[in-house]
Design a binder for these strands. Structure first.
Lengths: 160, 160
DNA sequence: CTAATATAGACAACGACGTTGTCTATATAG
DNA sequence: CTATATAGACAACGTCGTTGTCTATATTAG
């Protein structure tokens, strides 16, 4: 674990940091009534809110937002509807659009995620210092793109 | 992109940082004679070196190291053998074991990856400062597990 | 030495999840 | 009015993971 990964350590630590946060988030979410939530879902919820129009987002909207085909987005929507996180609607101005919006259950999950992330952030701040933690986020902003929602769906992202 | 992702920003930045580094690595690797390398492969190479015995690693070794089934590991091995990154051998002390070791082509890829990562690290250091960059890695060590090689194979990790 | 158990590897069936392609219905632009 | 673009449904398929089964080889217990 020592000398043979000088250059490899930075990317690896970034990935591990992400995974630690996401894994702990979902362990806690499961305890708080959302055992079916997957890492991908939070991003999908965000995308549903952003990508849609006034009456919600369509599969095509979602596909564009997440960087997948509309068919793949449609399957994700079906699953989330089945889990009670999305509900169908329609756009009175365009009969083609079959829209979806977040249910209260989904907002609950988002709010809980927010709180859990803040708790985890607090733990990290305790471990490394609030200033250093803030510095990490500020620094990463300088070297990462501003658009956060093209994720190209990693598979472990979807793992149960 | 502003207020509705307070708690979400830290994990997202970590992921984006990882993706930026990995994507740029592979763009450059492709230019340097390794267009077929995928994000997963570097980890597999590391695992082949670590997980195996004196005569190389088997599919079962690799599966354990990467957290996937031996069948999945076997398919990965087949692909990497086809690309010229692994070559078969055998263990004189155990006729069951069908071992694999890295080819010179794989070592070339590893060395180039190392150099490219150092370059990217240099770019980041220029953007945010060498001390801050070092701090990021040191801090992340404190909040991430020491064992880095259980990755559970994300799919985009495998994307072309 | 032999018998029971564990492990390596091959093979097959299957499942999750993504893709592309085709088709119809509705909007929108010329 | 007509041509083009887009939404959505449906189907076929590819990739990559899984589990289950089978044989060969090692290892351990009696």
């Amino acid at each position: 674990m020592s000398s043979d990964l000088r250059g490899f350590e930075l990317p690896l630590r970034l990935l591990l940091g992400f995974r630690v946060l996401i894994d702990e988030l979902h362990e806690e979410l499961a305890r708080q009534g959302h055992p079916q939530m997957r890492p991908m879902h939070g991003f999908v919820f965000q995308a549903v809110m952003r990508a849609g129009g006034r009456y919600g987002a369509t599969a095509a909207d979602l596909g564009r937002a997440l960087g997948v085909s509309k068919q793949a987005a449609g399957k994700t929507i079906d699953m989330l509807e089945g889990l009670g996180y999305l509900r169908p609607g329609h756009d009175p101005g365009d009969a083609r659009r079959k829209t979806y919006t977040l249910t209260p259950h989904a907002y609950d999950a988002l709010e809980r995620s927010e709180r859990i992330f803040e708790e985890l952030r607090g733990q990290w701040a305790q471990a490394i210092g609030e200033d250093r933690l803030r510095a990490i986020v500020e620094d990463l902003r300088k070297v990462t793109p501003p658009d956060m929602f093209r994720l190209d769906t990693p598979q472990w992202f979807n793992a149960p």
